[in-house]
Amino acid sequence: MEKKTGEPLIHLGVLEEALNLARANSLWPMTFGLACCAIEMMAAGAARFDLDRFGAGVFRPSPRQCDLMIVAGTISKKMGPAVVRLYEQMPAPKWVIAMGNCAISGGPFFYPEMYAIVPGADLLIPVDVYVPGCPPRPEGLIEGILLLEEKITGRGRLRKFRNAAE
């Protein structure tokens, strides 16, 4: 796996693992809506879907308090530099979820003559989890967050279910 910027130089073994467990279960996402998908992100945090169940419902307005950036929506060329700057302002360790087709690949707005958008968040910043859909349903985002937990700790809640199913 490629090394991410901001990864610590010294790894502390078991302690790191314990920390990762803590990190995975209290991800603090940034309130960062770009377009339509942001509404589904809000819905995921609100009454019915309730991201708080997974410890990821503490939406923070400032990048300096977050460790998860959910890129929810279309990144326009004008917004691109701001996305990079926001990512750089987040303290490490940090993760990125690309939510929606726009953030993955430009989605419906990508065509040969297109002039306005950046086709994919991964052209700007490293992305950990891709959640497809236009927009993805809140369940989709929740699955994305669980997958991210799995990526951080190596043993997420989803894996248990998947193993049981197999």
Binding site: L34, A35, C36, S76, A82, E113, A116
Partner: peptide, 27 residues
Amino acid sequence: YGHRGHEHMAENRSYLQFLPNLGRVDY
């Protein structure tokens, strides 16, 4: 900061193909 070029897209799509865009202008 959210400019996606809907109007330019309309000129490059058939009438029917542009229909899904409308749901994304004001979602």
